[in-house]
Design a protein around this nucleic acid. Structure first.
Lengths: 140, 140
DNA sequence: CGGAATCCTGACAGATACTG
DNA sequence: CAGTATCTGTCAGGATTCCG
């Protein structure tokens, strides 16, 4: 618990009560959420982290994503410059997606987050079970 | 670009094609998304990072959150053990929310992510503008 | 003040069918 | 193979009202 917490200090400035400037101010938290805050983006980026994937490979890798959402998520990530799309004009068309340089820079902070989830998983679910088990404390 | 990328290696095991075990396997990415993947959780945690807040303080700090979503997000975070809720039985009731120890551990990885957003913000929006400006390249 | 309950709407996302 | 198009249901989430 030490480094990079400067982000919090910077963030807190967006929140100061005297900064009620009806906000044209721009909040970085919103940005990161707009990019990877949806259901599939993180999954997608993690999958592409190891190697490039074709469209159908991604479907198999993620499995419970629909063709529609796969396409849409890929488009959004491409739009934000996080991944790139390469079309090979073979007989049955073939498309390869890979992490763009910008996307690579996202790997480390994201891996830290996954790491946290890995380590704290049990605590979270313990808390959840406890909360669900005793909502105010069950009488009988 | 070096440390903690082990999370990616671990993650990739969930994705290996031979692991088509119809998955009772548990994916940590889903967990972290279930906890803080929604629209308000990260905002909330960042706000509580600096100091405890009362219900109405949180409303002012986040501003465009509805009372409903504020309550719901707070309940979810409390349920997961990330924040704690303290009721003071004053005349008009007063409730204070603060980051639980478990929530504190989330601060550093999350701050890293915010930091990334801060630094890469311009690149992302440049990519976005470029993509929107030339969707295949406009003929006229 | 800090919620809970109810109603209501639109954006999201699944299923299906078609195309280059 | 890698999408697009349409249609439809679901449900997140805003507005409003009531309560302790």
């Amino acid at each position: 618990m030490s480094t990079a917490l400067s982000a919090i200090e910077r963030f807190s400035r967006y929140q100061s009560d005297d900064a009620q400037s009806v906000e044209p101010v721009h909040c970085p938290v919103r940005d990161v959420l707009d990019c990877i805050g949806d259901k599939w983006s993180i999954l997608m980026i993690m999958t592409l982290a190891t190697r490039p994937h074709r469209f159908s490979e991604l479907r198999r890798a993620i499995r419970d994503i629909s063709k529609r959402m796969l396409t849409q998520t890929l488009r959004d990530l491409e739009r934000d410059g996080l991944i790139t799309r390469h079309v090979f004009p073979t007989k049955p068309p073939s498309v390869e997606y890979r992490l763009a340089p910008l996307g690579q820079t996202l790997l480390e902070p994201m891996a830290n987050l996954i790491d946290w989830a890995d380590r704290r998983y049990s605590e979270i679910h313990a808390a959840r079970a406890s909360y669900d088990g005793a909502p105010g404390d069950v009488p009988r």
